[in-house]
Computed example of a mutant assay.
Amino acid sequence: MELPRASLPVIERRRALRLFAAAPAVAVLAACGTGSDEPDQLLPLATAAKADAALANAIARRHSGMSETARELAAARAAHASALQREIDRVASRDPEDPPSVPDPAPKKAPSSADAAADALRAAVREGQERAARLVPGLSGYRAGLVASVSASCACLQEVLG
C-alpha cells in the first residue's frame, strides 16, 4: 500500500544541508561543555594508592620478615594507581609531554617496629578500601567498575594482612 505524498514529511534541501553543517559544531560544543573546573574525583584515590605503594616498599626494605607481603601490597597499590591514572588522563585528554596528573608521593619512612609497620599497612589499605567504596555510588559506567574493583582489591589485601 502506498502512502499519499502529502503525508510524508518534506525537508527542504537547504534546511537539511544546514542541519548537517551544524552537526560537527554541536558535537564540539557538547564535548567542551562536559568539562569541569573541579579536580577529577579519582585523583585522591590515585594519590593515596601511590602513597600506599611507597609506604609498602619502604616497609619491605626495612623489615625483611614482611618484605614479601609488603612487596605484593606495593605492586597491587601501584597497579591501582596506574589504572586510576590512565582513567584520569583519558577523561582530561592531557598532553603526553605534561607531567603526570597524579603527583608522586614524598618519600616514605617505614615505622621502626614490625608491628607498627603491619598496622600502618592495614590502616592504609582499609582507608583505600573505604574511600573507594564511598565514591562508587556517585560514579557510573567504567569508572564505577574501576573504583569498585580497587575497593574490592583493598578488601582482599586487608584479609591477606590479617
Rank of each mutant, 00 (worst) to 15 (best):
L8R: 06
E72K: 10
N57A: 14
A76E: 02
R15F: 03
D89E: 14
E159S: 09
L157H: 12
S7Q: 13
R131M: 14
A79T: 01
S149H: 06
R15T: 03
L45A: 07
G65E: 04
A114R: 05
C156L: 12
C32D: 12
E2N: 11
L121F: 09
A25W: 09
D37M: 11
A74H: 06
A74T: 08
R90P: 12
S140A: 10
A155I: 08
E127P: 07
K50V: 09
L84M: 04
A92V: 12
R15K: 02
C154A: 15
R134E: 15
D115R: 02
S64V: 13
E87V: 10
V102E: 03
L45G: 03
T69F: 05
G138K: 06
Q41P: 08
A27E: 01
D104N: 15
G145T: 11
L139C: 15
R134N: 15
R61Y: 00
A116G: 10
A110Q: 10
M66F: 13
A48W: 03
R131T: 15
P24K: 15
L139E: 13
R15H: 04
T34A: 15
A79C: 01
S64T: 10
V91P: 03
S67M: 09
P96Y: 01
P100H: 11
G145Q: 11
R134D: 15
Q85E: 14
L161R: 02
F20R: 05
C154K: 02
A25P: 02
A148L: 08
A16W: 15
Q129H: 08
H80P: 03
N57F: 08
V125C: 11
S101G: 06
L161E: 09
L73C: 00
T34I: 14
L157T: 09
D98I: 04
P107S: 14
A22W: 12
P105L: 08
E68M: 06
A106P: 07
A6N: 07
S101V: 03
A70Y: 00
P137L: 06
R18T: 13
A83V: 00
R131S: 15
C154V: 03
